[in-house]
Each structure stands twice: as C-alpha cells, then as structure tokens.
C-alpha cells in the first residue's frame, strides 16, 4: 500500500527525552534493580529496550539484563497468512523465574503482539511480575492489555500507521503518522 506522511510527531530530541523518562519510571517502579530484566520484542522493540538499558546504566551505573523475543511462533493469525511470516531469533540468556520483567515494544496497537509475547514468556518460566513499556500507544486495543509505561499516547484512526523510525535501522530518529495515499 502506498503511504504518505500525515504528521511528524517526534524528532530525535523529543525521542531522547521520552526514553529518559521511561528509564526513570521503570527504575522508580522497580526498586530491586537486581531482580529487573528487560525483554525487547523483535525488531524495533529490541532497539528501544537496548537504549533504555544504556540509559539505566548511565543513571544508576547498573547493568540490567536484556533479552530478545520473537513472537511469530505464538501469533494468533498464523493460519490466515498467504505466506508464513519470517521467524526471527529469540535470545533470553538469563532465567526469568522470579524476576521483574519489563516487556518493551515500539508501538502497542491491538494488543495481540503483547498477548503472544506473554504466552511466549510463560513458556520460559514464571516471572515475579510482568510489566509493559510501549514507546507509542496508538489505541484501538482488541484485548484487555494496558501498558504500565507509555512514551506517548497517540490517538490515531485505524487506517493510519505509526512509524517509529530508529537510528539503528533507518539512520535517524523520528516518529511519523502515515496515511494511505488518496485520502
């Protein structure tokens, strides 16, 4: 589908401030830092999680473990695709048992990705708590899921798409709302 930019919501400075606030809020909620671990959802959630990990290190001087989660195998729509979606790597090399886990994704939308991530994590063990940090919450939830930490709440219409553009993948930082051409 052809898309055009409808609005630019954040630039690199705004994104940096928002990430710093998220890092502080995560630390505030989780006083036992040695129990804390971050899990980024492939692929953009992983980069956001890595940045939060670095910010926490800068703020408090502590190393928080970071895991990578691919939720493809737990999707609820695998039978609906023409072609099977690509499976990416999962790497969580610390025990999640009794830890405070913060799941991190770039955009939370219907909530189905988070549902799949939760199922996937519970296959690996029983965390003490499971929290959700979303850089952008764009509404339109189809499941009873609500982020514990939000970078920004962005009301959108369903035909729009939120793009979190990241230095690591795209070479620059910004958040855009896209809409189909011809609207």
């Amino acid at each position: 589908m052809d898309e055009k930019i409808k609005a630019k919501i954040m630039d690199d400075k705004k994104m940096k401030r928002t990430l710093q606030r998220l890092a502080i809020e995560i630390l505030e909620r989780n006083r036992e830092a040695d129990k804390l671990a971050l899990i980024g959802i492939q692929t953009r959630g992983v980069h956001i999680a890595r940045r939060i990990q670095v910010l926490i290190k800068e703020l408090e001087g502590i190393d928080i473990p970071l895991g990578i989660l691919d939720i493809t195998m737990f999707r609820d729509d695998l039978h609906k695709h023409e072609q099977q979606p690509a499976v990416k790597k999962t790497r969580i090399d610390f025990p999640i048992e009794d830890r405070d886990i913060v799941l991190i994704d770039d955009v939370v939308f219907t909530g189905r990705t988070i549902r799949a991530a939760m199922d996937s994590i519970f296959e690996l063990g029983r965390p003490a708590t499971l929290q959700l940090a979303a850089f952008i919450d764009r509404g339109h939830r189809e499941l009873p899921i609500c982020p514990d930490f939000k970078g920004k709440y962005l009301p959108t219409s369903r035909r729009e798409r939120v793009k979190v553009i990241l230095q690591e993948i795209d070479g620059k930082d910004e958040v855009l709302i896209m809409e189909p051409k011809g609207f």
Binding site: M73, F74, V87, K88, T90, L124
Partner: peptide, 16 residues
C-alpha cells in the same frame, strides 16, 4: 536458525 533456540528451552514446544 531461529528454531534452534526452541530446542534449547526447558519446554521445547511452540504453538506455531
């Protein structure tokens, strides 16, 4: 390569 990780888990099963 992505599926290798599943076989290293304690519970070696995914619902794909």
């Amino acid at each position: 390569e992505a599926f290798i990780e599943v076989s290293s888990r304690e519970v070696k099963k995914v619902p794909a």
